[in-house]
Design a protein around this nucleic acid. Structure first.
Length: 345
DNA sequence: AAAGTCTTCAACCGCCGGCGA
DNA sequence: CTCGCCGGCGGTTGAAGACTT
């Protein structure tokens, strides 16, 4: 199948980088005659190149409508979203990004986006967390980092709204957003027990500046937003009106040690709770094998009172939002450690 | 300042499908 | 139907520049 590569190369046509003179010859010829038959074009244009090389040079570099320079934040998000749908169909993606070529997008993906996704623990092929968060058997072998006392409070909000004018929170739209959020925002790292954990950092809005291309920056550090777009952030706020979310832009540093939360209210447990709801079956209790004790979004508490409070709140949440509740009885357990209890869901 | 290493991206390669002879 | 040509696509390479030691 196919045909032999450029036959011209057998007769000693030039390869390698194009000179300005060659570029000019190609531009001049196409301006005058247009492009069509790439096979005969180089000969007619006085170029010692194969037609394929000319076509590539024109479409990837010399075309007048090519947009050069750094990809904007919006372009990058578009690429990620389209790639999640189309995979490595670079030409199809390029068709939706005016002024960008498939080659340029492919290069940008391989050198920037792919690495960033990997760094965030996201599989660049499937766009899912490398640990399959929707697979309970998988999540049961990991723990999700959480330590704030707001954890339980947020869990309740998540499950039943704020009790006033907000709907119970777990609906398909929320789940969809949460999946997106979670896959866009997590930082994997190894904790001291060598198990995989996820950490969610926030930064104070006032520390963040946007550069000319729309990237969120702290100093010279480019930040990765956990929201695919501002629209989704707005949509998220509509669905999940937690005031502290409005006060913060949840942004995530490429190097997590660079920026830490300066807020007195961290979003971290909030996202962790999302993950929990997404990954926890709503009915059947999970049998807990002590030999492979599993913590899903475990909160910690240091006193009997706190422990009881956690339990009551979970039960309360379950009663108030039965449609989505966990089967708390026999489901919520505590694992005693040296200096605290872990809630084991 | 020099050497080594890493990153970027323009250009190439091989393959494929469409099309006409 | 088969063959050869052409344009197009996605994967890969390697030179050059950037960065680190």
């Amino acid at each position: 199948m196919g045909r032999s590569p450029c036959l011209e190369k057998k007769i000693g046509l030039k390869k390698g980088p194009w000179t300005p003179e060659e570029d000019q010859k190609l531009i001049d010829y196409i301006k005058k005659h247009g492009y069509g038959n790439w096979r005969t074009l180089p000969k007619n244009a006085g170029l010692e190149r194969c037609g394929k090389s000319c076509r590539l040079r024109w479409t990837n570099y010399l075309r007048p409508d090519i947009k050069r320079g750094r990809f904007s934040f919006e372009e990058e998000e578009t690429i990620i979203q389209l790639h999640s749908i189309m995979g490595n169909k670079w030409s199809a993606i390029a068709a939706r990004l005016p002024g960008r070529t498939d080659n340029e997008i492919k290069n940008y993906w391989n050198t920037h986006i792919r690495k960033r996704l990997l760094k965030l623990g996201i599989d660049p092929v499937t766009h899912s967390p490398r640990l399959d968060l929707l697979d309970i058997t998988s999540i049961l072998n990991s723990s999700v980092y959480s330590s704030s006392h707001h954890h339980q409070e947020n869990m309740l909000r998540l499950m039943m709204g704020d009790g006033n004018h907000h709907q119970p929170l777990i609906n398909p739209e929320i789940l969809k957003l949460a999946t997106s959020l979670f896959s866009n925002s997590q930082h994997r790292h190894q904790n001291q027990n060598n198990s995989t954990t996820y950490e969610f950092n926030t930064v104070n809005k006032t520390e963040v500046n946007q550069d000319q291309t729309g990237y969120n920056m702290i100093g010279n550090q480019v930040l990765q937003s956990c929201f695919p777009s501002m629209d989704q952030f707005t949509e998220f706020q509509d669905l999940m009106p937690v005031t502290t979310v409005q006060d913060l832009m949840p942004l995530f540093p490429l190097n997590q040690e660079d920026v830490y939360s300066t807020s007195n209210f961290s979003l971290e447990p909030f996202y962790s709770d999302f993950a929990s709801v997404l990954t926890t079956p709503s009915s059947s209790p999970t049998s807990l094998d002590s030999s492979s004790t599993t913590y899903i979004n475990s909160s910690t508490c240091s006193t009997e009172d706190e422990k009881e409070s956690h339990c009551n709140n979970f039960i309360s949440a379950s009663e108030r939002c039965p449609e989505y509740s966990f089967d708390v009885n026999g489901f919520l357990q505590f694992q005693e450690t040296k200096d605290h209890w872990d809630i084991v869901i």
